[in-house]
């Protein structure tokens, strides 16, 4: 598995895309920090970008990589290798290289800015961790879509639609349902609805750091417990991990039964 991981990883490193991705985050981080001179504001802007962009890049990269390396995969399948090793190796190769681009690309400007001395370090750390989580989740989801669709165009279409749904449409439906049902107690519903969308979940994790004063303004006891204590943090992180685990399990399940 590590060998395949290594091959996928170096393969991606040789293609210039991960460098472009890395340079994009490097440029973004530097511009935000050095032209802005306000770390809190930079963290907020970065949050908006990370929550939307990392899933998009993860999805597109995942689908693209799967379809592009199809011939290589078929070659590997002819070897005496377990299927799980092949697919998990490829998956980890993509996910790790993307997360590395993100972590290093944002990490360098922040370190250069002297973040270690600043109190924003925890906000920034949670931002990076959430970004890495999102990459792992969306690459896994993209692999799932690609595994289930032989047709490239269809696969791409579904992947983009999934991103659009989770990033925008889900929140729209969520907001409409909250406004429509405002007569009812909604705090449990809204927390549970958040759990079903990894993008919302990561947004909440960052909000817990950035906007805690606003979140504590709401009266519901469930909200109070969720936001006011470490409970929210723990639950969000565990559900986020589940969001990584389940798609991977499905990759394993699907790849075992797939006819190449």
């Amino acid at each position: 598995m590590f060998k395949i991981l290594k091959y996928s990883f170096y393969d991606l490193m040789r293609s210039s895309w991960s460098y472009v991705y890395f340079l994009f985050y490097l440029g973004l981080g530097s511009v935000l920090l050095f032209l802005n001179n306000d770390v809190s504001k930079a963290v907020i802007t970065l949050m908006n970008i990370i929550v939307v962009l990392t899933p998009l890049i993860g999805t597109i990269f995942g689908v693209m990589y799967y379809y592009n390396s199809r011939e290589f995969t078929e070659l590997l399948l002819a070897q005496p290798l377990k299927r799980s090793t092949i697919f998990i190796g490829q998956y980890l190769g993509v996910a790790i290289s993307l997360s590395l681009s993100l972590v290093i690309g944002l990490g360098i400007p922040f370190l250069a800015y002297g973040l270690l001395q600043s109190s924003e370090i925890f906000n920034f750390l949670s931002l990076i961790i959430v970004g890495a989580f999102l990459t792992f989740i969306f690459v896994a989801l993209a692999f799932n879509i690609a595994l289930s669709n032989e047709n490239k165009i269809k696969g791409f279409g579904y992947a983009i639609l999934m991103w659009l749904f989770l990033a925008v449409i889900y929140d729209g439906l969520f907001l409409i349902s909250l406004v429509m049902l405002q007569e009812y107690p909604l705090d449990k519903f809204s927390l549970i609805a958040t759990m079903f969308n990894p993008i919302d979940l990561s947004r909440i994790l960052i909000l817990l750091k950035l906007d805690i004063s606003a979140l504590l303004g709401y009266t519901g006891a469930v909200f109070q417990k969720f936001f006011g204590t470490n409970f929210g943090m723990v639950i969000s992180f565990s559900v986020l991990s589940l969001w990584v685990v389940f798609p991977i399990l499905r990759i394993l399940f699907k790849s075992k039964r797939k006819d190449f």
């Binding site: 907001l175 909250l178 909604l186 958040t194 919302d200 906007d211 303004g217 009266t219 519901g220």
Partner: peptide, 20 residues
């Protein structure tokens, strides 16, 4: 304005849809 009417919607703070 929406949060004033339906306080639970605070959970959608800083979402892309809300920005739109």
């Amino acid at each position: 304005y929406i949060v004033n009417k339906t306080p639970e919607t605070i959970i959608l703070l800083r979402s892309l849809f809300v920005d739109i």
